[in-house]
Design a binder for these strands. Structure first.
Length: 109
DNA sequence: TGGATGACGTCAG
DNA sequence: TCTGACGCCATCC
């Protein structure tokens, strides 16, 4: 084992401000994982191990809630986002461009 | 050891 | 916008 990058992904996920979302690619690029798949997999491990990771704030590049199937309920991810003020329609975020948050913004200060 | 798998991304048609 | 194909890399069996 030694999946240290898993903790990195969790750390970045916790840095996502409420009401904002980010993408797998953004995290993958920020952590230089090289593959966005690793991000989704790492987040899945977080839920599987019971880690407190706001994985619902991580969506794909098109703003689709592709990972909702891994939550306790298919609507859990959507309800959590809506509770934070993120509008979700048809498992998608129409205002994704406005809600998008990049981990790179931490460096900008 | 090696093939299959996966919460994706990018490119081409 | 959608579909199909390839790459990506760690983990599972």
């Amino acid at each position: 084992m030694g999946g240290a990058y898993i903790e990195d992904v969790h750390a970045v996920a916790r840095l996502i401000p409420p009401g904002r979302v980010t993408t797998y690619g953004a995290i993958a690029d920020f952590l230089t994982l090289g593959s966005a798949r690793m991000v989704g997999w790492a987040l899945y491990q977080g839920l599987a191990t019971g880690e407190a990771v706001p994985a619902h704030r991580v969506v794909n590049r098109r703003g689709e809630l592709t990972g909702r199937n891994h939550f306790p309920t298919p609507t859990c991810m959507q309800e959590r986002l809506e509770a934070e003020g993120v509008v979700v329609v048809d498992d998608r975020i129409p205002a994704f461009d406005e809600c998008f948050w990049s981990p790179a913004s931490l460096l900008d200060t």
